[in-house]
Nucleic acid binder design. Sequence first.
DNA 1: GCCGTTTTCGGCCCGACTGTTTTCAGTCG
Length: 476
Amino acid sequence: MTNAEIARLFGEIADMLDILGEDRFRVISYARAARQIESLTGDVEALVRAGRLGEVAGIGPALSEKIAEFVATGRIGVHEELRTKFPPGVLDLLAIRGVGPKKVRLLWQDLGITTLEDLEAAARQRRLRRVKGFGEKTEENILRAIELHRQGMTRALLWDAAALVDRFIAHLRSAAPLDRVEPVGSFRRMRETVGDVDILVTTSDPKAVVAAFTSAPGVREVLAEGEVKSSVLVEYVGYVDDRSRMFQVDLQVLKPESWGAGLQYFTGSKDHNILLRAMAERRGMKLNEYGVFRGEARIAGATEEEVYAALGLPWIPPELREDSGEVDAALAGGLPQLLEGRDIRGEFHVHTDATDGTEPIETMVDAARRLGYGYVGISDHSVSATVAFGLTADKALERRDRVRALNRELDGFAVLLGTECDILYGGAMDYPDEVLREFDFAIAAVHSKFTLPEKEQTARIVAAVENPHVNILAHP
DNA sequence: GCCGTTTTCGGCCCGACTGTTTTCAGTCG
Ligand SMILES: Nc1nc2c(ncn2[C@H]2C[C@H](O)[C@@H](COP(=O)(O)OP(=O)(O)OP(=O)(O)O)O2)c(=O)[nH]1
Ligand SMILES: [Mg+2]
Ligand SMILES: [Mg+2]
Ligand SMILES: [Zn+2]
């Protein structure tokens, strides 16, 4: 919680300094530090205690001191002093698309606008156009942007985004001549949540691709439409809550020779990009989404490997591109080996047609072997899971002979007979201990009473995992 | 405010789209 709170305060300091017209590089420092702390995987307080804050890129003596101040007192003095200069509501104006720090400053200073309601009223009354740089179109855009803001947009689960990605790419393929297409941004970096969907395309006909993009099914708003890039808002339905929401999709279109540089740029992260671009500059090169250049000459750009190699780096997996030390590690030849799908050796949570699966044990074993697994654990439901056709103890255990036969037959592959056993209301297991001990393994799972008070639910689960015959706790 | 195999001071990523503007600033990716 402390990480999120410090990130929020640094973000607000950046916004306030920006609106006040302070040095933009100081603004950038606060904004970058906010992103860094937000994406730390460990507790910032632990770093403070260990005196290791300075190891985080972009956090120097001044910011370290402010973080330490927050950890000690729960406040950041600079933030509180700045806050007194701003009427409540002013910072909220920044959430409106198309309204940035410069416009907020003008709206506030010239028209006394400090809230969204003020802004809406002034736009309706056509008073914005009196301000330098504002016109009729700006008023229209701001009114529409306020409307969209009020519908509320949140980050999406990677899973929801995946459905949207599939839909969009299928449409693009069917409606325009694509060379290559790839979902990029935080989606490619496999973040747990994504703020939007970013898609990279190469083609010989950019106009056709952009046109197909902006007219895709579900598009409710075209935010920008240019020669090589476009942004839209689409409606999508959440997998978990089945609710309809608006979500942004960004498109970048490039020529085939820039595929690698485009992938590098559009995959990000932003801070990773800035790091690479600064590094290119120091080495007398320039890096952008079109390629790596030395003078006028493009020296790399067709593949990502080539782009990283031109900078003297090995290819860095997207999951690591977060400005969290990956560039230094790559330079030192010390990138970590990431887990891959092929590292998965087997699975224990496998149902069959005996309960709510659709295939018999033998078919599941075949499928596991085709995936290159070394073992599979069969775990059908226990008797109380009636909606999932849970098995009586006798029915569950009578399959031991079948499993033994399979194991005799198979070389270098193990089949285990287990159970996904319900945790009953009070924490007792659905099968008695004499039955549980007969299985090769037992998973404990909650399939009822999901909404118990936290204390009771926790006690229930703790009781289950304390059972000596339980090996695995299932899904939440 | 941060940071460095050309720097401890003087730089700080780079480009597209939009609207307002007679040549470019602001915002966004
Ligand atoms: N060089 C550079 N690249 C940027 C900048 N902003 C964004 N990008 C690149 C890197 C990002 O990963 C990519 C997509 O931008 P997004 O705003 O969609 O960010 P991203 O997908 O990383 O995170 P998100 O989950 O959408 O918030 O565009 C920038 O200021 N400079
Ligand atoms: Mg994104
Ligand atoms: Mg984006
Ligand atoms: Zn289950």
